[in-house]
Amino acid sequence: MSDQSPRPRRLWARAGTKTRRRVAGFLALGVALLAVGGLYTVFQPEPETARAQDAALVREGQSLYDNACITCHGSNLQGVVGRGPSLIGVGEASVYFQVSTGRMPLKAQGAQADRKKVEFTPQQIDAMGAYIQANGGGPVVPAEPDAALIGSDLGRGGELFRLNCAQCHNFTGRGGALSSGKFAPPLDPANPHQIYAAMLVGPGNMPTFADTQLSPEEKRDIIGYIKSVSPDSGAVNPGGNGLGGFGPVPEGIVAFFVGLAALIGISLWIGSRQ
């Protein structure tokens, strides 16, 4: 073939190469565009509202909100001056903490929102959370069972607890006083999800601990530590009574008075005559 008519073929080939190159170029561009588009659809981050896709749940949450929360937080979650803050962007975690501990609905305006009887079922709390999450997003508590939120590195958890939490909540989570009638509550009644939510959103006057500050693993270790020093952790109290877990002051008072009474009693007995 090559020896027959190389010249015309080369001419054809030259003209053909140009066309072919053009076609190939268009094809390559098309494939590349398709690939980029495809990859984009595959790796595209889910939008913020993706968690609140369940429209029915959001509607239920809205109706609950309209009945229970609207007076203080406003018809558009914008808050009411002198009554309650805006709920835009506070997130599902905040709703879960405030409602599942009974703090919301608030009984009365005051220095501190107290833990009290829970007014809503878990399903209703989920619905309200979905509604708040659908309007502005915000932090979310991991949807994992309680046990998954309890970390195992209690040493690190304890160290982090003493650095970040103990100043207000006491070193074994007994709670303590703050200014002007506010207080940091004891941590025993809180379940792991509530503690996690509290760290994420910083309810009341508590500072926020975002994941950039305390990683999810560190939060889990802190919860593990709190649960290990809580009286209902099943840990045996070697002295028989923890005396409130407040440390050396009550223990010293008991040792002083009980010990002193025992010593006086024994001295009286030694000195007595039959």
Partner: peptide, 12 residues
């Protein structure tokens, strides 16, 4: 980093 802290937070 400056962005590690959310508004209303404290780090020692």
């Amino acid at each position: 980093r400056a962005g590690d802290l959310e508004p209303g937070s404290m780090e020692t």
